[in-house]
């Protein structure tokens, strides 16, 4: 505190109002952002419980690719496959159109994002992310470490 006197007390009211306005608009941006873009993250058994009121809701489903169910149509760049849950017998048919990641194959751990049609028990995916059941992760799990995921949009 060199020479100058310290100023005490609250800042002038107009700055408090302005600060609140800024904070309010940031809060509004975040609130509306979450409402517009949020996606529920379910496992297959959670999906089985909720089934009814999911029409049009953004969903992410986690599971594994059931072996031997991958059907790729190159002309349409479309793939149909079955997602299964390892612990239960729940399965879910998925259709996805778009680029197929290298890691997508039988037994791979997948996350699909899209919408669910309860009447057909079918999932239309717009995003497909796959993690290979690679030895790197198994080895790490054995030594109780976490899988080392590269900066992928997971």
């Amino acid at each position: 505190m060199t020479g100058t006197m310290a100023v005490s007390g609250l800042p002038a009211p107009k700055f408090i109002v302005a600060g609140l306005l800024i904070l309010g608009s940031v809060a509004y941006l975040m609130f509306s952002g979450i409402n517009d873009t949020m996606v529920y993250y379910y496992t297959l058994s959670e999906l089985a419980e909720k089934k009814t009121d999911l029409a049009g809701v953004g969903l992410r489903i986690h599971g594994h690719v059931s072996s031997g169910t991958i059907r790729i149509d190159r002309e349409l760049s479309q793939v149909d496959f079955l997602v299964m849950e390892k612990k239960t017998t729940n399965t879910l048919p998925v259709t996805y159109q778009g680029i197929i990641p290298d890691t997508f194959k039988d037994g791979a751990e997948v996350v699909v994002e899209g919408t669910y049609q309860a009447d057909r028990h079918h999932f239309q995916a717009t995003i497909l992310m796959a993690k290979c059941p690679s030895k790197y992760e198994e080895a790490q799990a054995a030594s109780s470490e976490k899988p080392q995921t590269p900066d992928q949009p997971y």
């Binding site: 940031v26 941006l29 975040m30 509306s32 952002g33 979450i34 517009d36 873009t37 949020m38 996606v39 529920y40 993250y41 379910y42 992410r60 949009p153």
Partner: peptide, 18 residues
């Protein structure tokens, strides 16, 4: 008790005005 995620669209939508 429910896992809700947000991804790129959320971040883009919120950060651009700022």
């Amino acid at each position: 008790g429910e896992k809700i995620t947000v991804s790129a669209p959320f971040f883009n939508q919120v950060t651009w005005p700022l």
